[in-house]
Simulated scan of single mutants.
Amino acid sequence: MSNMLEEKLRDAIVGELKRQAANRPELLRVQDAGDLAVHGRIDLDALVMVIAGAVAGGP
């Protein structure tokens, strides 16, 4: 996997987790300070869709 694709996937995953945390702060907390710490429930279907879109070249 190329570094560019890895970076795109990483950004997509972190962005989606932060979006979910902002929408449901009582269920999910995300701390991005070098290493990523995630505490709570993740909407896995939404995360999979974001990953699929990043791999397919979506926004």
Rank of each mutant, 00 (worst) to 15 (best):
35 D>P: 03
26 E>R: 12
59 P>Q: 14
34 G>Y: 10
34 G>V: 05
21 A>S: 07
7 E>C: 09
21 A>R: 02
2 S>A: 10
11 D>F: 01
59 P>H: 14
13 I>C: 09
34 G>D: 10
9 L>E: 01
27 L>T: 12
11 D>H: 13
53 G>F: 04
53 G>A: 11
47 L>K: 06
12 A>D: 06
15 G>P: 12
16 E>N: 02
25 P>Q: 08
21 A>Y: 04
51 I>H: 00
41 R>P: 06
29 R>T: 02
13 I>L: 07
25 P>R: 02
17 L>G: 02
7 E>M: 13
34 G>W: 11
6 E>S: 11
41 R>I: 13
20 Q>H: 07
53 G>Q: 12
5 L>K: 11
23 N>G: 05
37 A>M: 11
2 S>P: 12
45 D>W: 08
49 M>C: 09
51 I>R: 00
32 D>M: 04
25 P>E: 00
1 M>R: 05
31 Q>D: 13
5 L>M: 15
49 M>Q: 14
11 D>P: 01
46 A>G: 15
36 L>A: 04
9 L>N: 02
11 D>G: 10
1 M>G: 12
58 G>P: 04
36 L>F: 06
46 A>H: 08
19 R>M: 11
23 N>T: 05
43 D>M: 09
27 L>P: 01
52 A>I: 02
49 M>F: 02
